[in-house]
Amino acid sequence: MNGILLSEIILFVIALTMDSFVISFAYGISKCKPSLGVVIMMNGVCSLVLGIALMAGGFLGTLIPDWVTKQICFVLLLLVGGYKLIAACRKKETVDQTEIKELSWTEGFLLALALSLDGLVAGVGAGLLYSNKLLLVACSFAAGIAVMLLGWMLGYRCRHFIRRDLSWISGACLLLLALRTIMGV
C-alpha cells in the first residue's frame, strides 16, 4: 500500500480517534448530542491539523536518513503514548456527569483544537515514515466521525452503569505503533 500497511493505518487511526470516542461517550452519558454538522466540523479540524503535521513530517523525511526517521518516529510515538497512559492513570475514575444541554459550534471547534493536538505530534512522527498521507487523513476523518457517533450512542445507552475512564486505550495504541515502528514488524 505504498509505504504503509493496513494494520498500521488501523492502529494509527484508533490512537487518534480514541479521545473523540471517549469524549463523545461522556457527552452521551450526560445526554448531550452534538449535531452531525458539529461532528463533521470537529473531524475536519482534526484531519486538517493531522494533514499539516504529516506533510511537515514528510518534508523532514527528505532531509533525514531512513533509520533516523524510524528512531524519531519511535521516540515521538513512545512519548505521546506514554504521556497518554500516565495522564489516563492520574485522572479520576469516573466520567464527568455535568449536565450539558447542547454542544455549540464554538465549543465543538475549541474541543476539536484540543483533540487535534495528538494528531499534531503523532502526525509529524508518522509523516516521517509514511508516504500515503492522504489515505491516513481520509481514514482519520471517516473514522473520527464514526467513533464520535458511536461513542455518543453507546454513552447514551450506558449512562446508568458505566463510570470508568477509557482514555488509556489511545496511549496503548500509540505505544503498540511505536513498538511496531522500531521492530520493523
Rank of each mutant, 00 (worst) to 15 (best):
A26V: 11
L120S: 08
D165T: 04
I4T: 14
T62P: 01
L36V: 13
K31M: 14
L136G: 03
V68R: 08
C46Q: 00
L115D: 11
W168L: 11
R164G: 14
G184P: 04
L120M: 14
M18L: 14
N2L: 13
A122C: 15
H160F: 05
K70Y: 13
I145V: 13
A53G: 05
K92I: 06
V38G: 04
I29L: 10
G51Q: 12
L177G: 07
F141Q: 02
W105Q: 10
F109T: 15
W105S: 11
R157Q: 04
D96M: 05
D19W: 02
A122M: 07
L76A: 05
K133T: 12
H160M: 05
I182W: 07
M18T: 15
K84V: 06
Q97T: 15
R180W: 02
G82E: 02
A114H: 02
T98E: 10
S7A: 03
G171M: 11
G28K: 02
L166F: 15
T98R: 14
D118K: 06
L179V: 09
D165L: 08
T17Q: 11
R164P: 15
A15M: 11
D165I: 09
L135N: 01
E8R: 06
M1V: 08
I29D: 01
L77S: 07
R159A: 08
G151S: 13
M1L: 14
K101C: 03
C46K: 00
